[in-house]
Computed example of a mutant assay.
Amino acid sequence: MNEEERLQELLDYKILDTEPDSDLDELVEIASAICDTPISLITLIDDKRQWFKAKKGIEVEETDRNDAFCRYSFDKPHEVLVVEDSLKDNRFNTNPLVLGDPNIRFYAGAPLITPKGNVMGNLCILDKQPRKITRSQQRALQLLAKKTMDNLNNRKKVLEQDKTIEANISRLKKLTNQAPGTIYQFEMSPQGHYRFTFISEGIHEVHPILAPDILKSDANKIFEAVHPADLDFVLESIRISAEELSLWDIEFRVLLDGRTSWQRGISRPEKLVDGTIVWYGMFQNINRIKEYEQALEQISFDISHILRRPITTIQGLTDIIQQEKLDEKAFKKYSALIKEVSEELDVFTRRLHTTYAEKHKRIGRR
């Protein structure tokens, strides 16, 4: 037996010093009932002690490891350890648990075997007088020991799954907090109450005083950041999305340090069995997009209004040239006018190009 490996596996179960388990308490009750003994235990042995996970007929929680009967099962994991009279057994006749309380004279224990073959302890029965045990009772103890290990193994799997889930949640949280914008899970109860069950740290981009903890305790705080002129529109869009289970995809303004900032909210709703509507989505800052759109609108205005005069002038001159018979003097006159307008048009288009380039560069830096 590799004691270091056995102890490590025992620690991996995270079972030592845990609260009582009703299922395991029932197993020791059954063991005493089958074998008609006043005391029954589920014992676990670490490097210093024998600790009782479940017990019947005894008050102490643990004993010294050196006094434990079940340590003799370590090298015989598939046998029931039977001591019919401890005073006649040289291994136990000087044991404090035999000579003193609880005055053990009879002991029978079935090993608790891990999947790796290590013995963590025993499911055992004890009596204060010598006695015998039948083969069928020994078999019953082994079956109860197996049930005990089934319980412990299932518990260990759940703990490992919880640990994996926690690790995945931690990694996901780190990823979402690094993602641009705000990722969230937002709920509306059948009674119309709002709640954020998850929201990433990116919420600070929407408003510096908002934080995930604040919004989880009071989801309505999010609406305080919305521009008053857009609040009714935002609330109505949420109502429609919930009613129709349609994609919520809107652009709205928020107040950020006294300034107006544009946000886009997009999420897909889902209706739960209890009537709760859940949205999974994100907020994004779209100030750059809005500024770019405004720059394009200004350029379109400049093209449609400011360029109209020189273009109209050129068109008029070309009509005159086409309709009249011009002598050399008149032709030079109109050619000079066309050149003048063309130069004016060239100056303006160059200025327009410079303005556009500066706006594009400024927006890209933000």
Rank of each mutant, 00 (worst) to 15 (best):
M1K: 07
M1P: 04
M1I: 14
E3N: 09
L7Q: 15
D12S: 15
E19V: 10
E19C: 02
P20H: 03
S22Q: 13
E26F: 05
S40I: 02
L41F: 04
I45M: 11
I45D: 12
I45E: 13
D46H: 06
I58S: 10
I58P: 02
T63K: 05
N66H: 04
R71W: 06
R71K: 15
Y72G: 01
F74W: 08
K76T: 15
K88A: 15
D89A: 06
R91T: 11
F92K: 08
N93P: 06
P96K: 09
L97H: 01
L99H: 00
P102Q: 05
N103Q: 12
I113T: 10
P115R: 11
N118G: 04
N122T: 12
I125W: 05
I133C: 06
T134C: 10
R135Q: 14
S136C: 00
Q138W: 04
R139T: 13
Q142S: 15
L144D: 12
M149F: 01
N154A: 03
K157H: 07
K157D: 10
Q161N: 11
K163F: 07
T164M: 12
E166N: 09
E166F: 00
S170H: 11
Q178F: 06
Q178N: 12
G181A: 11
Q185A: 11
Y194K: 11
T197P: 00
T197Q: 10
I199Q: 07
G202N: 08
G202P: 08
E205D: 14
E205K: 05
H207R: 08
K216C: 09
S217D: 06
S217I: 01
I222V: 14
I222S: 13
I222H: 00
F223G: 02
E224G: 04
H227G: 02
L231Q: 09
F233M: 15
L235F: 09
A242C: 11
A242K: 04
E243V: 03
E244H: 05
W248C: 13
D249I: 06
F252K: 07
V254M: 08
L256I: 11
D257P: 00
G258Y: 14
T260I: 15
R264S: 10
S267L: 00
R268W: 07
R268Q: 15
E270V: 13
V273C: 02
T276H: 04
V278T: 09
V278G: 00
V278L: 14
W279H: 09
G281I: 02
G281N: 03
M282W: 01
M282G: 14
F283P: 01
F283C: 02
K290T: 08
E291H: 00
E293I: 13
L296D: 05
L296R: 06
L296P: 01
E297W: 01
E297C: 01
F301Y: 12
L307I: 03
P310Q: 03
I311A: 05
T312V: 07
T313N: 08
G316D: 05
L317A: 07
T318E: 15
T318G: 00
D319E: 10
L326R: 09
A330F: 04
A330P: 00
F331V: 04
Y334G: 04
A336R: 07
A336N: 10
K339L: 14
K339I: 09
E343D: 15
E344I: 03
E344G: 11
V347Y: 07
R350G: 11
H353I: 07
G364T: 08
R365M: 11
